[in-house]
Simulated scan of single mutants.
Amino acid sequence: MRAPAAAAAARLRRPLAALSAAAAAGLALTALRPGPAPSVRVLAASRDLPAGATLGTSDLRALDLPPPAVPAGAVRSGAAGRVLAGPMRRGEPLTDARLVGDGLLHGYGPGTVAAPARIADAGTVRLLHAGDRVDVLAAPPPAGPGDLPGNGGRWSEARVIVSGVPVITVPRHAGEEGQEGALVVLATDHAQAQALAAAGPTLSITITAP
């Protein structure tokens, strides 16, 4: 009886040995296989975004970058509700330099906010520099041909939204093709910022004496 049992055991040892060898080889390969490359998760634009846009969650997506490719000041979280100081292309990593931030308000009094305003005349905005003081006016277009001067009508009177507010910055490329007007960032209080936001798209400015 022992001979058949010994023969059966011998037959089993060979496949078991092969399985053990295969398992050992697999473990060795797993140990030698390099792990996933290190990466840093940052926020990037999920679509083309214009200067002055208030960021929402749908405007941003997570992007994993290798550490050497992470730009200085890359933003990793907490960007929703912030305002872009310049335009962004889809897939571009978001950095602190792209945001209207507290650093722009250094030297201004308490309660001051950085309020973006898009001005219809981009040429006038290009004349501005930080520290200039401006009046911002809303001038709605005429309601119809009868309101045009010379037709017995007149233009609607311009409405002053804010007066004598300082320019903080004029973002680069703020009036690039495809955008309406040009962006300028002004130092205002909260009430003035709300008035600018509610004033509509047709805004103009006049430069006042410092």
Rank of each mutant, 00 (worst) to 15 (best):
G181C: 13
R133Y: 03
V134W: 08
R118F: 04
A5W: 05
S204D: 14
R14V: 10
P171M: 05
T124G: 01
R33T: 15
A191V: 11
L99V: 10
H173W: 11
G152T: 09
A5P: 02
W155Q: 08
A80D: 15
R126P: 00
A8E: 10
A28C: 12
T202R: 15
P87I: 04
D189L: 05
L94S: 02
A198N: 11
S20Y: 00
G200I: 08
G35V: 06
A138D: 06
A53N: 02
G81S: 12
P15E: 10
A25L: 15
V70D: 11
D59G: 06
G200S: 09
A18N: 03
S20A: 15
S39V: 15
L203R: 00
G81P: 03
R47S: 11
I205G: 00
L148D: 05
L27I: 05
R2I: 08
A44R: 04
R14T: 02
A23H: 06
A138S: 15
T112A: 13
V160E: 13
A117L: 03
A17R: 10
L12H: 01
S204N: 03
R118I: 07
D147I: 06
E92I: 00
R133C: 06
D64M: 07
S39N: 08
R13C: 09
R61Q: 11
I207H: 01
Q179M: 14
I119R: 01
G81Y: 08
P4Y: 04
R11S: 06
H173R: 14
A6D: 13
L196N: 01
P149E: 09
A117S: 05
H106Q: 13
A85R: 03
N151W: 13
G101W: 08
S20I: 02
V75F: 12
V136Q: 00
A31S: 07
A51I: 03
T169A: 15
R33E: 14
L60F: 10
D64G: 05
A139K: 06
A24M: 07
A120L: 14
L94R: 02
A182T: 10
G101T: 08
H106G: 03
G107D: 03
T30V: 13
G73A: 12
L49N: 06
A115F: 08
A209S: 14
G164K: 05
L27S: 13
P34G: 10
P67S: 07
R159M: 09
M88Q: 14
S46M: 05
P142E: 14
G111M: 01
L12F: 07
A21T: 11
A114E: 01
V136P: 04
T54N: 02
A17D: 11
M88T: 01
L137C: 05
G123N: 13
H190V: 14
A9F: 11
Q192I: 00
E92Q: 15
R47M: 03
G35M: 09
E157R: 13
T57Q: 13
L99F: 11
G152N: 11
L148C: 07
D59H: 07
S163A: 14
R118E: 02
A199L: 11
L196I: 12
G178T: 04
P71H: 07
L94A: 04
A18L: 14
L128A: 05
V185M: 06
V170G: 09
G101Y: 07
L203I: 04
T206K: 02
A24T: 07
L196D: 08
